[in-house]
Computed example of a mutant assay.
Amino acid sequence: MKNYSTLIPDVESNVLLRERTHTKTGGRVQYVFYPHNLEELKTVVSTLKSDDVYFEIFGEMTNIAVSEDNLDFVVINMMRYDENLDPEWDGKRFLTVSASMKMKKLAVWAYNSSIKGLAWMEGIPGTVGAGIFMNAGFLVGQDMETYLVSAEYLDLDDLEVKNVQNQDLNFRYRYSKFHDMNAIVLKGTFLLYPLKRDWKHVLRKYKLKLQMNKYHARRANNQPLGLPSAGTVFVPPTPWHVGGMMRELNMVGYQIGGAQISPKSPGFIVNVGGMTGEDYFKLVEYMQTKVHDNYNLTIVPEVRLISRMGDPRRKH
Results as ranks from 00 to 15, higher is better:
Ser5Gly: 02
Leu7Ile: 09
Val11Ala: 10
Val11Phe: 04
Val11Met: 08
Glu12Ala: 08
Val15Ile: 15
Arg28Asn: 13
Val29Trp: 00
Gln30Lys: 14
Tyr34Glu: 04
Leu38Gly: 02
Glu40Tyr: 02
Leu41Asp: 02
Lys49Cys: 01
Ser50Gln: 15
Glu56Val: 11
Ile57Asn: 02
Phe58Ser: 04
Gly59Lys: 07
Thr62Ile: 01
Thr62Ser: 15
Thr62Met: 05
Ala65Met: 08
Glu68Met: 05
Asn70Cys: 00
Leu71Cys: 10
Phe73Asn: 06
Phe73Pro: 05
Val74His: 06
Tyr81Glu: 01
Glu83Phe: 11
Asn84Ser: 14
Glu88Met: 13
Glu88Leu: 14
Thr96Val: 07
Ser98Lys: 11
Ser100Ala: 15
Met101Phe: 03
Met103His: 06
Met103Val: 04
Lys104Phe: 10
Leu106Gly: 06
Leu106Phe: 10
Leu106Tyr: 00
Ala107Pro: 09
Ser114Leu: 14
Glu122Asp: 05
Gly123Lys: 04
Gly131Asn: 02
Gly131Val: 12
Ile132Thr: 13
Asn135Cys: 11
Asn135Glu: 11
Met144Trp: 10
Leu148Ser: 08
Val149Glu: 13
Ala151Ser: 15
Glu152Tyr: 02
Tyr153Asp: 01
Leu154His: 00
Asp158Thr: 11
Leu159Lys: 03
Glu160Ser: 14
Asn163Arg: 09
Gln165Asn: 04
Gln165Gly: 03
Asn166Ile: 08
Asp168Gln: 13
Tyr175Cys: 08
Phe178Arg: 01
Phe178Ala: 10
His179Asp: 09
His179Gln: 14
Asp180Trp: 08
Asp180Gly: 00
Met181Asn: 00
Ile184Trp: 00
Ile184Phe: 05
Gly188Tyr: 00
Pro194Phe: 00
Asp198His: 08
Leu203Ile: 12
Arg204Phe: 10
Arg204Cys: 09
Lys205Gly: 07
Tyr206Cys: 06
Tyr206Asn: 13
Lys207Ile: 07
Gln211Phe: 02
Met212Lys: 02
Met212Arg: 12
Lys214Asn: 15
Arg218Pro: 00
Asn222Cys: 08
Asn222Gln: 15
Leu225His: 07
Pro239Asp: 00
His241Trp: 14
Val242Gly: 10
Gly243Trp: 04
Gly244Ala: 13
Met246His: 13
Glu248Arg: 14
Leu249Cys: 11
Met251Thr: 06
Gln255Ser: 12
Gly258Tyr: 07
Gly258Lys: 05
Gln260Glu: 13
Ile261Ser: 09
Ser262Ile: 04
Ser265Phe: 02
Pro266Gln: 10
Gly267Asn: 15
Gly267Asp: 11
Gly273Lys: 08
Glu278Asp: 03
Tyr280Asp: 07
Phe281Lys: 15
Met287Arg: 12
Thr289Phe: 12
Lys290Val: 12
Asn294Leu: 04
Asn294Phe: 09
Tyr295Arg: 03
Val300Ser: 01
Val300Phe: 06
Glu302Met: 10
Glu302Arg: 07
Val303Thr: 07
Arg304Gly: 06
Arg313Leu: 13
Arg313His: 12
Arg314Glu: 07
Lys315His: 14
